[in-house]
Design a protein around this nucleic acid. Structure first.
Lengths: 134, 134
DNA sequence: CTGGATCCGAATCGATACTG
DNA sequence: CAGTATCGATTCGGATCCAG
């Protein structure tokens, strides 16, 4: 007789669903842009190219580790291009690709929605929290 | 002389920047919709109301804890409404509010971008990984 | 200047068991 | 049916040190 039934079946469902989710383009994209630093980097780069140290200063609170990590993954995804200029102090520039520009446009849409509706969200929160108090 | 300099200054910058980020509506929204389950719940609910157990089944891999947590925060933000019908087995329905509908529209836009561009991302990844190999 | 490697603490997720 | 409480596992992010 089976020592596992419900647990195994649920585990199975979880794995399958996980695969489904990961294969969904929307979720892949959400996973990507949801990263805390991604939108900031894309936003920072949208006016034009920037050096590593410039980004590091503009984004302020980011650690070298996270900045590099973010930059690398965005480069891998074709969102931005990395250009190394071999000099005595090495110079590295980051620049949005056309795909990156397109993404920054989408982000602008998100930003627009956020600015239009965030107040409603805040009001809803206050109502909700007020009820919780009473 | 100070034993802390760079670290302290960065810490300070981090705190300030953190405040800036959190006050930014776009980031607030991104934080919200980036949650693994949020988009799934909104998507599941967009055709119409659903009961807790229906959601639980439709979203499959979610644990009760995460489902409740997601539902609660969405309710707090005015994205969905929770309706309790006192009966012998209690009945609870969840339904998108107008704000939630609006959000699901935005999500549709995101989905559209994702489906249009995800292939480019995949191609970029393959190129990148191929270079890494060689 | 531009990062890579490592360690560690915090936060988060998920499974399980239990309640009304 | 609709959750809540708890605990363990995992993951993430930051600090630090080091290298090209």
């Amino acid at each position: 007789m089976p020592t596992t039934t419900a647990a195994q079946r649920r585990e199975q469902a979880r794995v399958e669903y996980d695969a489904f989710i990961r294969s969904c383009p929307t979720n892949q994209l959400l996973d990507r842009i949801s990263d805390k630093w991604v939108s900031l980097v894309v936003c920072a780069l949208s006016p034009g190219p920037m050096r590593y140290s410039e980004l590091s200063r503009k984004i302020a609170g980011v650690s070298p580790k996270m900045l590099t990590q973010t930059l690398r993954s965005l480069e891998r995804d074709g969102i931005l291009a990395r250009t190394v200029t071999p000099a005595v102090p090495v110079r590295v520039d980051y620049e949005l690709t056309p795909l990156g520009d397109s993404l920054s446009l989408l982000l602008a849409g998100v930003k627009n929605w956020a600015e239009t509706h965030i107040e409603q969200v805040h009001e809803a929160r206050e109502r909700y929290d007020a009820e919780a108090d009473g």
